[in-house]
């Protein structure tokens, strides 16, 4: 277990906080945390230490059908990966 996913709903907004590292080994847990969300998803990645394409894949999948908002920390490796992947084109970005 390299990461914690904490989800909560506030009306139709599902907020998931990611703490730790996300790779192919636990991307499924992120998926689970997002399953059944309403029209809006907020994923707080400001405390995520690592994110690879497996995690990105989950986020891209949800960005297609919902309004996705990502919370990032400036200057981290995660921000670089998110920007390079093009996820910024389909999700709203907020900095903590």
């Amino acid at each position: 277990m390299t990461a914690k996913f904490i989800g909560r709903d506030d009306g139709e907004i599902r907020t998931v906080t990611v703490v730790g590292e996300v790779d192919v080994a636990n991307a499924g847990e992120l998926e689970t945390a997002l399953t059944g969300a309403g029209a809006r998803i907020v994923v707080e990645l400001d405390r995520a230490e690592y994110l690879d394409s497996a995690g990105l894949r989950v986020l891209f999948t949800h960005a297609r059908t919902r309004r996705l908002e990502l919370v990032l920390r400036r200057g981290g490796g995660v921000e670089q990966v998110v920007t390079l992947s093009g996820l910024t084109e389909v999700a709203a970005i907020r900095y903590d």
Partner: peptide
């Protein structure tokens, strides 16, 4: 589209 993302990422990084 999804699977090729890893390779694209490697090239970008």
């Amino acid at each position: 589209r999804e699977r090729g993302r890893g390779v694209r990422m490697m090239r970008a990084l």
